[in-house]
Design a protein around this nucleic acid. Structure first.
Length: 157
DNA sequence: GCCAACGTTGGC
DNA sequence: GCCAACGTTGGC
């Protein structure tokens, strides 16, 4: 069982959108970075949990918990000609990009903003907070996961 | 293989 | 809107 952090821009697809999907399940498509692809394709397992992170918004924050309900499989949006994530180098015969299916679990009781994560010394070595931590899919160590859930409970508002 | 140009991410 | 920090592309 591993933990993850998945980024999405809430204006494109936020946690509320996931909550409204049928069975609260959606495929996590559009990842077009090889390192992130490798995590999706090779490491994510059904039952893994992930933080849903809202990026490119104000404030950027962890807003909820989601669960992996289908392991990596080819991202078919890559070969849909008019799709915004189209990539001609990926084909059904030789898929280049992969995705997983995720299911809504819950919102955090309060969003935990990037600034708060940065201010906590116990989280300093999270990949999210490193220079150049732009990956949209990254692993979260168990102690970081637990500590963030602890932060959720400690303050209110 | 090198590296300059270019495109993207994403915080601020 | 700005721009730092990437990653990718393609000429050589």
């Amino acid at each position: 069982m591993q933990y993850w952090l998945l980024k999405s821009e809430p204006e494109m697809f936020g946690i509320d959108d996931l909550q409204r999907r049928p069975q609260q399940i959606e495929h996590w498509d559009g990842v077009r970075n090889y390192q992130a692809r490798n995590f999706l394709r090779d490491q994510m397992q059904v039952g893994d949990l992930a933080f849903f992170y809202h990026s490119n918004c104000s404030p950027p924050a962890i807003v909820g918990v989601i669960r992996i309900v289908r392991a990596g499989y080819p991202d078919h949006t890559a070969w849909q000609l008019n799709h915004e994530h189209f990539d001609g180098k990926s084909t059904p015969e030789k898929p280049r990009w992969f995705m997983v299916d995720v299911q809504y679990v819950r919102h955090l009781q309060r969003p935990i903003a990037l600034a708060e994560l940065k201010s906590d010394p116990r989280l300093h070595d999270m990949p999210l907070l490193q220079k150049g931590g732009r990956l949209s899919v990254m692993p979260v160590r168990e102690e970081h996961w637990n500590h963030i859930l602890q932060m959720e409970r400690e303050k209110n508002g």
